[in-house]
Write a protein that binds this DNA or RNA. Structure first.
Lengths: 142, 142
DNA sequence: ATTATTGCAAATCCTTTGCAGTACC
DNA sequence: GGTACTGCAAAGGATTTGCAATAAT
């Protein structure tokens, strides 16, 4: 159930490199994100942590999340509501989302051709893709 | 330099339909967005308006922008900094966005093949696309 | 011991809202 | 004259920050 030792070590190395200490709070935020699937805002994660393991303040959670994003353990995404959502970037397979605007049902999809063309577009402008958001808001055909 | 009468009329009709009045402030916000190309936050637009035509308060600007988004005159986009950006949706051809995460520069792109595959994916699940968000967060290749 | 870390509360930033005065029909 | 509109200033909500107490090495 735990996180692979290799990943935890990677986290420890990042901390060392940044002259930061490996504290329980930082580990709790790190674990909350890496052992749960989905998109969480800061308070979701704090709730998850408080439910079983301990306590982390919002200040610390945000500070740690910034760090996780900076070192590619987490992906940050802000939709139109302006609330930052974070998701596991290490263990989750990539996928995009199709959202049924009438039922809120979420269907995942991946299309290699789209992935390939995206990369090509970025490259042709001299860029490489760091992350992307691709969401189809859809409606059932009657 | 003006906006096509047809578009202004469409705006007037929306206002009528919503029991709202066609006021100078609403028209200034509407014009600021529809006669400028680019992605603007609320204060950008207020600055544009104040520079030549008059004054609009932030409250009114936000209220009008909501309306413009609701009726498809404007597109709203929120990136990781949490600041809402608005762009002309009427006069600009459909496009997606590539965002340089180091400079915040926004580059537009369109790819017919991606558009086609998207539709196909939705259709194969029995859906049609109402709108979509496709953003590539990129980084210059050194 | 020394240096970084934490949590709190205050501060910030963008955005929304209540309200009193103003403008529109 | 009666509604709807505006701008102000205050309120809101998410995130950040200063600081004194606390924990890690």
């Amino acid at each position: 159930m735990g996180i692979k030792k290799e990943i935890v070590d990677r986290f420890k190395n990042v901390l060392k490199k940044e002259n930061l200490k490996f504290t329980n709070q930082r580990f709790l935020v790190f674990s909350a994100l890496l052992t749960n699937e989905g998109h969480f805002d800061c308070d979701d994660l704090i709730r998850i942590i408080n439910k079983k393991d301990g306590n982390v303040s919002r200040a610390t959670a945000y500070r740690t999340l910034d760090l996780l994003v900076k070192y590619d353990f987490a992906r940050k995404m802000v939709l139109d509501d302006g609330i930052a959502k974070y998701e596991n970037k290490i263990l989750s397979k990539h996928h995009d989302h199709m959202i049924d605007i009438e039922t809120d049902e979420i269907i995942e999809f991946v299309n290699d051709e789209i992935e390939r063309i995206q990369e090509e577009i970025a490259k042709s402008h001299g860029y490489k893709i760091v992350k992307h958001v691709h969401q189809l808001f859809v409606k059932k055909i009657k």
